[in-house]
């Protein structure tokens, strides 16, 4: 049970407080405070720390302070459309208003399409006073997203020749996805693929599985290349088996969704 509530004004103070045991350091709470009794004794509220509430637009990147609400993120003009759709489809505005971007990455069951989109796009995360920006993919692989207070999230803009696309399968248009895929593709001016990543949810025990689509890189981006790329996907996945979808179904859907995401990317680049 929360016995102490602290709202520091400076980042350094928050980081010091974060070292206390049984402490949650967060802005928002709509995703983190589900359930009646929270397993913390102290809440350090980040809402009043200016360094965590900024939004910066750089040439190729957007920087969001870790305490920015998902609604503010969504309202940012240069945020890639696929990420906007990911935020909008399953997360209503009242929850977006009181979920910080940092919280959305650190809760136990993060929003899947949002996370997949960020992972595919190679978003970066900066913790505390650390100057290093960690690739989200690396943090996901190492299960290291909860290592500290998220100071900022860096989201690349979509440049000419780039596309971030997504696809999902769900029971209804606003239901949580059974399987979803986000694919990022960058091509050169001859339509040769330079970089391609896909991030999957619902296909393993991990929240997100990121696959570097090396087979696609160096090839002309077309339907044939997409067909070749998706072929080995089922063998790379070990999906769970539950009432939402069997392993076999999830494996098949991973392929269908990846193909659709890549086809959308092909239209977009």
């Amino acid at each position: 049970m929360i016995k102490q509530y602290i709202r520091p004004l400076k980042l350094a103070e928050a980081l010091e407080l974060a070292k206390q045991p049984a402490t949650i350091v967060i802005a928002g709470g709509a995703m983190a405070f589900r359930g009646f009794d929270l397993p913390y004794e102290t809440m350090v509220d980040l809402q009043a720390i200016p360094e965590l509430n900024h939004i910066e637009t750089y040439d190729t990147t957007l920087e969001f302070g870790g305490a920015c609400s998902l609604q503010r993120v969504l309202d940012t003009p240069d945020l890639p459309q696929t990420l906007k759709q990911a935020l909008r489809r399953t997360i209503p505005r009242n929850i977006r208003n009181n979920t910080s971007i940092g919280e959305s990455l650190q809760v136990d069951d993060p929003p899947r399409e949002w996370l997949a989109g960020l992972a595919a796009l190679d978003a970066g995360v900066r913790f505390g006073e650390d100057e290093v920006v960690h690739p989200l993919i690396e943090l996901l692989e190492n299960n290291a997203l909860k290592q500290g207070v998220i100071r900022a999230v860096f989201i690349p803009k979509i440049e000419p020749g780039e596309a971030l696309s997504a696809s999902y399968v769900a029971r209804t248009p606003a239901d949580e996805p059974i399987v979803n895929v986000a694919a990022f593709v960058r091509v050169d001016n001859t339509n040769i693929v330079e970089t391609a990543f896909a991030a999957f949810c619902g296909v393993s025990t991990q929240v997100v599985t990121v696959i570097h689509l090396e087979n696609l890189e160096g090839h002309l981006f077309n339907q044939d290349a997409i067909a070749q790329t998706i072929k080995p996907i089922p063998t790379l996945l070990n999906p769970p088996n539950d009432y939402k979808g069997s392993s076999d179904y999830r494996r098949e859907m991973a392929t269908v969704c990846l193909r659709r995401a890549l086809e959308s990317a092909l239209q977009a680049v």
Partner: peptide, 17 residues
């Protein structure tokens, strides 16, 4: 809260200070 909808059940009262 400041004109924007939020859920009162998933928010500590202290956060509304």
């Amino acid at each position: 809260l400041d004109g924007e909808p939020v859920n009162a059940q998933t928010m500590l009262a202290a956060q509304a200070d």
